[in-house]
């Protein structure tokens, strides 16, 4: 309610006197004002069963008839009986009387088909209520849908098509590159002739570079082993559930540090190390790097 509703001062004072909080008192006082306005305008208010008096025609007689029927219905038929008694239009758009007439007609047409039921078809048709309350269903529904609805597309053709393009692109790249660039093949292996420098494959050059600074057991065994184990354990000690970059600054900084460190070590080992694995400038001393 956007525009202000006036407070029914009398109700407000009463509620305050009863010790209600100001917030509740104000809300109820406003509600009282609205109710008074509606009554003045001749609108009906409140639940339907209570409104039975208002639409004059649907008489109290019906309601009275409903009561014993409900009782006869045994355990079940309380709630609907009251509602049916009101003579109000139900969900189907029919009044109770109309619906009963239909049911009776249908049963008559079927002959004694329904009479197998307890009490017989006619008796059933004459009852004032047509259904019984068997259970209360929570308003959320019986089935809970767990997974969120996500924005998804069919794998075929959307994903498969782009994968196919990627495959074609990679194949073309590898074939053309291989046709143009020759893979190295040096002279026959000779254990008595050590080339200078002797370098490991590029992905181990960061470790070979570390060999310059640490004992071989540290650089060649301890660091890679610990690095691998820590890498594997990473998801178990990064307890931060967020995958948003702004929530993961520490993780980003730490990971980027190691990534850049290993990249720098690999580049130094690859291009800036010459004979004797000594430091060289690649643009003056040439490249000592082979794939």
């Amino acid at each position: 309610m956007a525009d202000e509703v006036e407070i029914d001062q009398k109700v407000y004072d009463e509620l305050i006197a009863q010790g209600k909080s100001e917030r509740i008192a104000r809300a109820r006082a406003k509600a009282a004002t609205v109710k008074a306005q509606k009554v003045a305008a001749g609108e009906t208010i409140g639940p339907r069963a209570q409104s039975a008096e208002a639409p004059a025609a649907a008489p109290a007689a019906a309601a009275k008839a409903a009561a014993p029927a409900a009782a006869a219905g045994g355990g079940g038929g309380v709630a609907t009986a009251e509602r049916a008694g009101g003579g109000v239009r139900g969900a189907g758009g029919l009044t109770v009387e109309e619906r009963q007439a239909r049911v009776a007609a249908a049963l008559a047409q079927r002959g004694n088909g329904a009479s197998t039921r307890t009490g017989g078809g006619a008796a059933l048709a004459n009852q004032d209520h047509t259904h019984r309350l068997l259970a209360m269903v929570p308003p959320t529904g019986i089935q809970q849908i767990r997974g969120k609805q996500e924005d998804k597309v069919y794998t075929w053709p959307h994903l498969i098509a782009s994968e196919f393009i990627a495959v074609l692109a990679w194949t073309a790249f590898v074939v053309i590159f291989s046709a143009l660039v020759q893979a190295p093949l040096r002279e026959l292996a000779n254990p008595n002739l050590t080339p200078n420098p002797s370098k490991a494959p590029w992905y181990f050059l960061a470790l070979q570079e570390l060999l310059r600074y640490f004992h071989p057991m540290v650089a060649g065994v301890t660091i890679p082993t610990v690095g691998l184990l820590l890498g594997m354990a990473l998801p178990y000690f990064d307890k931060n559930p967020s995958n948003k970059p702004e929530n993961r600054k520490t993780a980003y900084v730490a990971f980027t540090f190691f990534l850049v460190l290993s990249a720098v070590l690999t580049i130094i080992g690859s291009f800036y190390r010459g004979p004797g694995f000594e430091f060289v400038w690649p643009w003056t001393d040439g490249l000592y790097f082979e794939l």
Binding site: P195, S198, F204
Partner: peptide, 29 residues
């Protein structure tokens, strides 16, 4: 896989790259 394949051409490059790599394994405690 890449490292084991590196040895197979059996040229100087293969022999000595693998030599460097496996020497390090010798330092396992």
């Amino acid at each position: 896989l890449s490292f084991t394949g590196y040895l197979l051409p059996w040229d100087q490059l293969a022999q000595w790259a693998v030599a460097v790599g496996t020497q390090m394994a010798g330092f396992t405690p």
